[in-house]
Design a protein around this nucleic acid. Sequence first.
DNA 1: CAGCATCCCCTGGGATACTG
DNA 2: CAGTATCCCAGGGGATGCTG
Lengths: 120, 120
Amino acid sequence: MGVLDHTPAACRAREILDRVGGKWSLSVISQLGAETKRFTELSRGIEGVSHRMLTVTLRDLERDGIVSRRVYPVVPPRVEYALTPLGRTLLDLVGGLVTWAEDHLDEIDAARAAYDARAE
Amino acid sequence: MGVLDHTPAACRAREILDRVGGKWSLSVISQLGAETKRFTELSRGIEGVSHRMLTVTLRDLERDGIVSRRVYPVVPPRVEYALTPLGRTLLDLVGGLVTWAEDHLDEIDAARAAYDARAE
DNA sequence: CAGCATCCCCTGGGATACTG
DNA sequence: CAGTATCCCAGGGGATGCTG
């Protein structure tokens, strides 16, 4: 028996999946892992993200205390985003996900192909 | 710079989130972590899951090679589900998520409360 | 027992246009 | 530059009922 033998544990893990599971969350966290960035820098660094979704994602992460938002009262506006200490602990965890993905994605793809082949 | 400094890395991590991010996936993986179980056992062990969603979740996990399905040709039908070796490696990873959740959920909840308070 | 099939609803997320 | 507002759609997921 490990950490996951009771349902409540899976429940809690789901909560963080809800927090990090958004389509763009990981990309944002990834981008902010190295350094503080401005809105437009993030926008350019994340291929395919719309203006709106980047805003929404940043708001959610900020609300959860994973990303900090610093506004400079200048014109034109300047806003900088960074990971909070909490966000940086997440970064380590997500590193584990990436490693696992690299190690097993081929395996999963093969399993899918085999499954689909069986069912035609 | 860590594992997450480039977007492609985040992309790959997203793929596994897509695979495991379903509402019931973690609960199923959790339930199967300890031992092989039958459909009804799983159903009883996971509070709130509907008949249909359990079926769908199991199919998806089976397709990805995370869960194995064994049918006994008897009547009444008997079907047993278990984690595959690949599934067990996932179990370890998810253990990390659970630990992180336990360590930081209060922090996140506090951040949310503070954020919501600021915005009224 | 294990599970498809059907119906329906709701939210996540895309496109686009407007502002301080 | 850094957003907000509005509209819209696909599909994830719930409820229920039928079957081998």
